[in-house]
């Protein structure tokens, strides 16, 4: 009798388990449902408005052929890869790691200041951040008023001349907090005794980093890369609000290209093919990271 009392109530029967799992099943179901429709659309010439919104037809792989034969997709893919590599991998990941290492074991004002600054960027809504960066980098903005002009140079229109660099920097500023927090937690998980033992054995600080810390937190690095690559590869709001994909097509990442094709040109079928292609690319990158997660033999 007593042993039954302490039995976890969830394990008491199948139906209950099913009810508990219902939200998850629903969520997965909805995800699959939309993915299926996107896939189905991508083989049609469906449009959001006009006659083809009613009389659409199946067009086979036309939309996928279009990805490679028409201008737009490959150019946007190249912009997206640059944006992802420099803002997520080089910027957020490396910078987050370096900050976490530098501030490890530190307490007091400096650490609090850095953490609050990082979090502010992270917590600020994308649209607000976009206005902030627009104002900072414009010809009459903060950067020119306080740095470029006092140094005796002509003011620079950063968003006209270095648009991609500006949105990359904005995204590094916006997203570094996540990597920093994750790496701080990861570094805390490295047992102090192991590091002390290595020091006693004569390992230099560089050796301790390369031989002990990095291998131990490798799964964290892979997880972080997985997350930020997916987020950054599909990122839309900050870039769209800051530059709308321009000037010209300088900052037109795939997410913006997808938006324009689907809702501005109104070609929902083509837009769906772009989204399926994005899914495949992100899926491929994720597989690479998941391999990294596995322990080496």
């Amino acid at each position: 009798m007593r042993s039954q009392d302490i039995r976890p109530w969830l394990a008491s029967g199948g139906p209950l388990l099913f009810v508990a799992a219902l939200p998850a099943i629903l969520l997965v179901g909805v995800l699959l449902y939309f993915t299926f429709w996107a896939l189905a659309f991508s083989f049609t010439d469906l449009e959001t408005v006009g006659a083809k919104a009613v009389n659409w037809s199946w067009v086979g792989i036309d939309n996928y052929v279009r990805l490679f034969t028409r201008k737009g997709f490959l150019e946007s893919l190249w912009v997206t890869l640059q944006f992802t590599f420099f803002s997520a991998i080089v910027g957020q990941c490396v910078m987050g790691f370096l900050l976490a290492v530098a501030l490890r074991g530190k307490t007091g004002r400096l650490r609090a200041l850095v953490e609050v600054s990082l979090m502010l960027g992270w917590l600020l809504p994308d649209i607000v951040a976009a206005f902030l960066w627009s104002a900072t980098t414009s010809e009459s903005g903060l950067l020119n008023q306080f740095i470029v002009i006092p140094l005796g140079f002509d003011p620079i229109n950063f968003r006209n001349d270095y648009a991609l660099t500006v949105v990359i920097l904005a995204n590094v500023w916006k997203g570094t907090a996540w990597s920093y927090l994750l790496f701080t937690a990861a570094l805390d998980s490295v047992p102090r005794e192991v590091l002390e033992a290595a020091t006693v054995d004569g390992a230099t600080s560089r050796q301790r980093m390369w031989r002990i810390v990095l291998p131990m937190i490798r799964p964290h690095i892979a997880t972080n890369m997985l997350f930020i690559t997916i987020w950054t590869f599909t990122y839309f709001s900050l870039i769209f609000a800051m530059t709308g994909g321009g000037p010209g097509n300088d900052t037109r990442v795939l997410a913006i290209f997808l938006y324009l094709q689907s809702f501005d040109v109104h070609k929902l079928g083509y837009g769906s093919a772009i989204s399926v292609a994005m899914l495949v690319i992100v899926g491929g990158l994720s597989l690479i990271y998941l391999r990294l997660l596995k322990e080496p033999k």
Binding site: A130, F131, S134, E139, N157, R159, N160, A163, A241, M242, T243, G244, G245, G246, P247, G248
Partner: peptide, 10 residues
């Protein structure tokens, strides 16, 4: 004119 005026946030 700088092209960026056509792509401002607002």
């Amino acid at each position: 004119t700088p092209a960026s005026i056509n792509y401002e946030t607002d």
